[in-house]
Design a protein around this nucleic acid. Structure first.
Length: 939
RNA sequence: GCCGAAGUGGCGGAAUAGGCAGACGCAAGCGACUCAAACUCGCUCGAGCUUAGCUCAUGUGGGUUCGACUCCCACCUUCGGCACCA
């Protein structure tokens, strides 16, 4: 009798042995091809949750599969350990962020180890340790040296709840709320550090060297938002330039020049007014005295509008005339200059030429303020009447001087652009939506920005040899909106590295995305050269390791990082390349995203309560509970003077929300009743002895993201205790399409449980009733084996994990069928060895145990991945369907090498086919090789 | 509004250089084993009908084709992203 399968015993046993044997230590071996597999590192929030498993377990499976295929695999793990939650814990609970973080990391490392992944823990890197963040600081200095870092005063998004600035991509939705806490952000004018990611905008649009999902490529492309067009110079009408306007305008080339960016220079002749953003520097200088007040009011209102929540969903155009005019450079017309908030200071030049006939926004504005709308592009269906709406489509240029008759937009745009260049009135230009990366955060728990401010010398970088700038431990965390470091005298005051005079340190720290932009390099040699002094020529990692392992071959993680981490890390590697630190353009060659596991939906229990009404609420005297599992036995829902009955939709300490109408009925106001339950009131659960309490009652759960407050969290630790890691790994692969994810299904896992147990018993238990071997048995089994090897290999390669498991289940079924006849034969041995090898990456412990049981050499994880023989897949006879006019009417069995005529004859002879062709004219017969027979008949 | 993805049994999902729709599982039903239950094993399982077979069926409506989940056109729904980007 076989040993029963007790995963709790075998899993820890093998995990200990693998660790002791350093089975997964990744060591450079120039004789082997390398494979750098990487999965996004977790934030140490406290517990590993099912989402981490869903992301990491299949990634581990694939790393193991690559290892068996003969690659030298590096599969590291670490922690993204700086960030707000640690600091919030400090504020709320008085725990130091470092203590909180390191404690969580210890806990999560242990939890991760229960997964049985092949992580090389000797390469673990934790971004909040000085050995790590001094290199983050070093990289800042490098970027500064390269001219990629700069500091400027600018309006930034600020979360009043987190008390820190946010990068643009951390502000979400139309309501512009903080991604982390949902608080509406406000604008603050602060001096901040930026990185010139825009230098790489064009290069970031090029995905030709990487195999990344279309979705991510599209998101990044849209985020960068490249648009081609022209910059055109409009002159302010000379009489409108004010005498006192002496100072040169910021970002404006010539005195009184208004530069606009347009994607449609071919519509220049239709520009009948101009619009400046309220913050545009020229506004104050050109506004006529009589318009001063109106403009000033409008500017104030516009500023406030970004600060208060934008309530209005309809965006009625607003604006104020400055009183001044500009000259349209192509036809010399005087056109009014307006100020309106539909023009953004942050895009293009903050000024536009308005062409109402061919731009929807300009059209709406012109309609509202009764400005002329001349047509300059004649579209096919234009009847010559005034336009009802803007016509941005294709057409032919009219009323456009020398260009009349030119097809627009092409080649009109190109022709007009080069004409403008010849005339010195404009030039071709490219604009991006992407803006420089704001990295300053007014927080303590982040990598310090290694800069010093001196009254004499200004901003001075901390010398490389003085790194790291260490975070002091004794900091007061009370949030003020400024970095806590600002109030730490010892940290704040320093001497200027240049002149030796008194100076202060930068007290802002870096966005944590900086740390995670280079962690895949940190894994190569964690905390490299810790303690040794640095200089400008240092390298943050062991160059030999980098040369062998990088770039990353396969990167897996969530698609939610598309416009943040995944764009920053590409930028980083391009900057590192320009710094001479790497010799390639892209950090990760292949990227795949997994989906999200949501909470499991579930009915609530049913309660039948007697009591009495008190206004709209019902006071309970007795509560009877019926389990959500036995819906058939529920008493019928409803409400009366002394009774309320229905499903529990929600619950708190003193009340239940009960749905008093049946599922099928329309839900209205009266469908939910709030029942007040006094503390200690007995709760009667039929079939259960004694009294329960309110906390025993389960309430209705919808499909939602898992969260502690919704109490729909699936804890991997519990699952491992119940089922073992192997089964959880396999189920996470089998239950959903990996890239989509979906709601958790606690019953679905049973299928995987049965499968794994079946394999376990299949190999260990000799069949009780043997049957004689039939001649074709061996072929059938081996054919199934070769099929499985092929299918599983292809599925692994394509991240199609659910079908890989399905194929393995199919193969297991085939072996089960062959068992009674073939047990103990050579073919049997081959079949079960192959099954174990194919399953080894998925269920590493259980296959290792069975491999040892069969007396095979340790370790199964050092064996080669099986290969298949195409010839073995071919069957000698085929069953193929016969269609008549596209409908299947029968099936025939023919030998695989039968010629077309034989197949046709067999098809026509099939009784049901013959019945359907009788008395009809056969038009033609199509025979795609080995697939089917298609007969076309006519009456 | 714009961009992108997805709609297949009661459920998760298979199948796309066009070729037997529903692989593999879950749930359900029936049966075997058992004193009994659980486990396990076997069978049934898209809907309908006048059931050796036939009709309908992959979000809806058209089209191409001997043949369409797959390709084309129009539309609907859901999800994700962007949102006055000139």
């Amino acid at each position: 009798m076989a040993e029963s399968y007790i995963p709790q015993q075998i899993e820890s046993k093998w995990q200990e042995k693998w660790e002791a044997d350093k089975l997964y230590k990744a060591v450079i071996d120039p004789t082997m091809p390398k494979f750098y597999a990487l999965t996004m590192l977790p934030y140490p929030s406290g517990d590993i949750h099912i989402g981490h498993w869903y992301a990491m377990a299949p990634s581990d499976v694939r790393a193991r599969y690559k290892k068996m295929q003969g690659y030298n695999v590096l599969f590291p793990m670490g922690f993204d350990a700086f960030g707000l939650p640690a600091e919030n814990a400090a504020i709320q609970r008085g725990i130091h962020p470092k203590t909180w973080t390191l404690r969580n990391i210890d806990r999560m490392r242990t939890q991760l180890k229960s997964m049985g992944a092949m992580f090389d823990w000797e390469r673990e890197a934790v971004s909040c340790l000085p050995g790590y963040y001094r290199w983050t600081e070093w990289l800042f200095l490098k970027f500064y040296e390269m001219g990629l870092a700069y500091r400027k005063q600018s309006p930034v998004d600020y979360c009043p709840n987190c008390k820190t600035t946010l990068a643009r991509e951390q502000v979400v939705g139309e309501e512009r709320i903080c991604e982390r806490c949902g608080t509406p952000v406000v604008k603050k004018d602060l001096k901040q550090w930026f990185w010139r990611i825009t230098n790489y905008a064009d290069e970031l649009l090029d995905f030709s060297e990487i195999d990344w999902p279309d979705k991510i490529r599209t998101l990044q492309t849209n985020w960068i938002g490249r648009s081609e067009g022209a910059e055109v110079v409009f002159k302010v009408a000379p009489e409108d330039m004010l005498a006192e306007a002496g100072a040169p305008g910021t970002g404006v080339p010539g005195e009184g020049d208004l530069v606009v960016f347009t994607t449609r220079p071919d519509t220049l002749w239709g520009a009948t007014f101009m619009v400046l953003a309220p913050e545009h520097p020229l506004v104050d200088r050109i506004t006529k005295p009589e318009q001063r007040n109106a403009i000033a009011d409008y500017q104030t209102q516009a500023t406030r509008q970004t600060e208060i929540e934008r309530l209005s969903t309809e965006k009625e155009k607003t604006g104020v005339f400055t009183g001044a005019y500009a000259i349209n450079p192509v036809n010399g017309e005087r056109i009014p200059i307006w100020v309106a908030d539909y023009v953004m200071m942050t895009y293009g030049t903050g000024a536009i030429m308005a062409v109402p006939a061919h731009d929807e926004r300009d059209f709406a504005f012109a309609k509202k303020f009764e400005l002329p709308i001349p047509v300059v592009i004649k579209t096919e269906d234009w009847d010559g009447e005034p336009l009802e709406e803007a016509q941005p489509g294709e057409g032919v240029m009219i009323n456009s001087g020398p260009f009349d008759g030119t097809p627009a937009p092409h080649p009109a745009v190109e022709k007009v652009t080069s004409w403008l260049e010849d005339q010195g009135k404009g030039k071709a230009a490219v604009n991006y939506r992407l803006r420089d990366w704001l990295i300053s955060r007014q927080r303590y728990w982040g990598a310090p920005i290694p800069m010093v401010y001196c009254d004499k010398c200004g901003a001075v970088p901390v010398p490389y040899e003085d790194l790291p700038v260490l975070l002091p431990d004794d900091v007061d965390f009370m949030p003020t909106g400024e970095s806590p470091l600002k109030y730490h005298e010892e940290f704040l005051h320093t001497t200027c590295p240049k002149c030796g005079g008194p100076a202060t340190r930068e007290t802002d720290t870096m966005d944590t995305f900086v740390c995670s932009s280079w962690y895949h390099y940190a894994y190569l040699s964690p905390y490299y050269k810790d303690g040794e002094p640095l200089d400008t020529n240092s390298i943050p990692w062991d160059p030999e390791e980098a040369k062998y392992w990088t770039p990353v071959d396969t990167y897996t993680g969530g698609a939610e990082h598309a416009t943040m981490h995944l764009i920053y890390t590409r930028f980083f590697t391009k900057a590192l390349r320009d710094a001479g630190l790497v010799d390639y353009d892209e950090p990760m060659l292949q990227l795949r995203n997994q989906g999200i596991i949501l909470g499991e939906p579930r009915l609530g229990d049913c309660v039948e309560i007697t009591g009495e009404w008190d206004g709209a609420t019902f006071r309970a005297q007795e509560v009877k509970v019926y389990s959500f599992k036995d819906q058939a036995d529920w008493p019928s829902a409803g409400r009366s003077d002394n009774r309320v009955c229905g499903e529990v939709m929600d619950r708190d300490d003193v009340s239940l929300k009960v749905r008093v109408k049946e599922e099928t009925e329309e839900v209205d106001e009266g469908a939910l009743v709030v029942v007040q339950i006094k503390e200690g009131l007995p709760v009667i659960i039929p079939g259960k002895e004694g009294v329960g309490n309110l906390g025993d009652i389960l309430y209705h759960l919808e499909v939602e993201k898992m969260s502690k407050s919704k109490k729909n969290v699936v804890a991997p630790d519990d699952l491992v205790t119940t089922y073992g890691a192997d089964i959880v790994r396999a189920y996470l692969m089998f239950g959903w399409r990996w890239e989509l994810g979906g709601p958790w299904d606690s019953q679905g896992i049973e299928g995987v449980v049965r499968w794994v147990h079946r394999v376990w018993n299949l190999i260990q238990e000799e069949p009780r009733d043997r049957v004689p071997v039939q001649p074709e048995d061996e072929d059938t089994l081996l054919r199934a084996m070769h099929r499985a090897v092929k299918a599983v290999t292809e599925d692994m390669e394509n991240f199609s994990f659910n079908t890989a498991i399905a194929r393995l289940m199919e193969y297991t079924n085939a072996i089960t069928k062959a068992r009674a006849a073939l047990w103990g034969t050579a073919a049997w041995e081959q079949a079960i060895h192959t099954l174990l090898l194919l399953m080894a990456p998925i269920t590493p412990h259980m296959t290792e145990e069975l491999w040892a049981y069969l007396g095979k050499p340790y370790s199964i994880h050092q064996q080669s991945w099986p290969t298949w023989d195409e010839e073995m897949l071919v069957e000698s006879t085929l069953e193929i369907p016969v269609q008549i006019n596209g409908k299947v009417r029968g099936k025939i069995t023919v030998s695989a090498d039968a010629d077309e005529e034989t197949i046709k004859a067999a098809a026509l002879a099939e009784p049901n086919v013959a019945r359907h062709t009788e008395g009809k004219q056969i038009v033609k017969i199509i025979v795609p090789k080995g697939k089917l027979v298609s007969i076309v008949v006519k009456k």
